[in-house]
Design a protein around this nucleic acid. Structure first.
Lengths: 172, 172
DNA sequence: AACAAGTGAGTGAGTGATCACTCATGTCTT
DNA sequence: AAGACATGAGTGATCACTCACTCACTTGTT
């Protein structure tokens, strides 16, 4: 059984992702979620509070996504997993990650870089494999992964599959 | 002498870039630009029309930015110029490019990929230099350039300078 | 040269619609 | 009965946009 509180959060997430935070009214969220508008403010104080709750969830989901890579002891495997990461995201979660990528451009949210733990792990991996500049290699690969993620979120993963193989060969 | 019409466009550009399209009211644009609110609608029919005018300018500026690279006959030089691109943008133009990067995530704008001409040129360059998979190399480098651009627009270019040198060595 | 007629940039009070948010009230569950 | 959950009409504020109007300036006529 999914609670009305969760229903509100999921609906807001979906609408914010596709149309943007300011463009979506609390009335529309309530209608689409099948609850009264007042209930939004009972559970999440304000519209901003609703967004904050989504951001908290975003942080948790990001950690969960990175966890298996961070914990991977084999540097080669860690790099392969990082490259595969954008392809592992199920399509039904696309709205969620789209919203995260949008939020990167909001002034008060860009500060804490969610990618940093992954970059650190990649840096460690390249270091283990005796790359000359592991830190720079890690930064570059993280840019590539982020770029591929962006493309996948916009156009789907199919067209990017061959690029994945190319990267795994290149870094393998 | 800068016309009021231009003043409106520049002010809207600045506010849209820093706070987002929907978050900025036409009243605030008028106040900051030092014109009446009505004038906005005389020159640009609607708020959406104002955004469209900015998008047209964006397309022109992007072409101008890529032009010297596209025209470069030496493939090595073309690649170096592409890598240097994010560092050549003057700080006063940051709001403009920030807005462009934000707009990438708006549903009706993401379709036409402004980067494609640059990717094609890079692909040609790698081909000239006998890379095995010039197309994929070009896609990857374009992701790196876009990632560096994003970082520079958010945090400034200083911290990225060493990465630029690293890339030029790598691809040189 | 003088003046009437016309043009369009520019104004700002005013419009209905919609915004985030409140609160008196109703309906469950125990 | 009582407290938590839930409602939706109502609130002032703000939204994008309109419109009647002014005024500096150009154009046509004599």
């Amino acid at each position: 059984m999914i609670s009305k509180k969760e229903k509100i959060l999921n609906t807001a997430l979906e609408l914010f992702a596709s149309e943007g935070y300011t463009a979506v009214s609390t009335r529309r969220i309530a209608e689409k979620a099948g609850v009264s508008e007042g209930l939004i403010f009972r559970h999440y104080k304000s519209k901003k509070g609703l967004l904050d709750a989504i951001k908290v969830q975003a942080g948790e989901r990001t950690i969960n996504l990175f966890a298996p890579i961070i914990l991977q002891a084999d540097p080669k495997k860690a790099i392969r997993m990082a490259i595969s990461l954008p392809f592992e995201i199920p399509a039904k979660e696309y709205p969620f990650w789209k919203l995260l990528f949008k939020l990167k451009w909001e002034t008060d949210y860009s500060e804490d870089n969610k990618m940093q733990p992954l970059i650190n792990k990649l840096s460690w991996s390249f270091s283990q494999l005796d790359y000359k500049s592991p830190k720079k290699e890690a930064e570059i690969l993280s840019h590539i992964i982020e770029g591929i993620s962006t493309t996948i979120l916009r156009d789907g993963k199919e067209a990017q599959m061959s690029l994945k193989q190319f990267l795994i060969r290149k870094y393998g």
